[in-house]
Write a protein that binds this DNA or RNA. Structure first.
Lengths: 170, 170
DNA sequence: GCAATATAGTTTCAATTGAAACTAATGTGA
DNA sequence: TCACATTAGTTTCAATTGAAACTATATTGC
């Protein structure tokens, strides 16, 4: 009886996750909320990449890491973009066709390829960066500086934990 | 000069988002981090649904809302699961075949169908709920109660903002 | 009452995706 | 040195997906 009288939770706002006396509310279920949020944000940025540059998200990710670490192999790109090598292979193929990326074969290991942005790729990247950052800024504009720090920490903790859990399964 | 000497950021930990003197770090870019986290978590839970019940995430979502609000139409299910009606239609078709969901035609509007969990569906749902909640609990186990509340608030704010931004485009 | 329009839900078609098979090159152990 | 395993990257195949077209029913304006 005492339990039933504790403070009522508002729907959609629940710090304890989706549990409520053993029932489950999809809207409050963390995996669901993360998925919906990531998809909404992803649509926002994907629209920008596509409308203004004809790029997909995987293509943009490849460009972003090549801009920072030049001469990566496809596998290294995969490692830095959280994509598998099949996706990278396909994204790179399109970027090569578009003249955004250049490929050379590694001299000492002829299986590896060295990927770099072309001059054109560098120029396009330079145009996208401020737009990408402004989308991020607009998203974060509803948070205080303190909340941004908090978010950063929480996402890092959850990512680490999710990977631990994943490692336990397969 | 003074600026260059301020406290160094550790890589991957950046409360200001991905911006750093106009450059962009993919690992710190919020849309990227959300996408990677949501995908990691999603794989974790999808594996559980699939291995133990042969269900996909869309199917599970349909079951979850039908367990809570019985006799929904497909469009209502779509609204409550953040899926489009095509996805719902396909998920429902599989659930019907599996005998998990029952469908009746609405008497007053013969376009609508009334979807409900079957007895079998209710039984399966009752088995999944504790597992789903335990995955969520394991994920949240690295956060304090205070951090859970904080996460809840941050996700809600970001979701609302992301939808605002989405609404501005198309 | 009925033409025009809107809504519920399904189907079709093309694009995206992941897993597994594959090719080519490198590394390893007897 | 030569079989065997490993790694880089691509291709193939089947499943998933979204957009648009489609069917059937309901609503609206006249």
């Amino acid at each position: 009886m005492a339990k039933a009288s504790r403070k009522r939770k508002e729907p959609g706002s629940n710090a304890d996750g989706a549990a409520e006396f053993g029932r489950l509310s999809l809207e409050q279920f963390l995996p669901y909320r993360l998925s919906v949020l990531a998809n909404t944000v992803s649509r926002d940025v994907a629209r920008m990449y596509d409308e203004r540059f004809g790029l997909s998200v995987p293509e943009w990710r490849v460009m972003a890491v090549l801009a920072r670490y030049e001469a990566l192999s496809a596998v290294e790109v995969a490692g830095r973009t959280a994509m598998d090598k099949v996706r990278v292979s396909r994204a790179v193929a399109r970027l090569l066709r578009a003249g955004v990326v250049q490929r050379a074969t590694d001299r000492t290991d002829r299986r590896r390829s060295e990927l770099r942005l072309s001059a054109r790729g560098i120029a396009i990247h330079a145009q996208i960066v401020p737009l990408a950052l402004s989308v991020e800024r607009e998203l974060l504009s509803v948070l205080s500086a303190e909340e941004c720090r908090s978010l950063d920490l929480l996402l890092a903790k959850l990512q680490a934990r999710a990977e631990e859990i994943e490692g336990m399964g397969p």
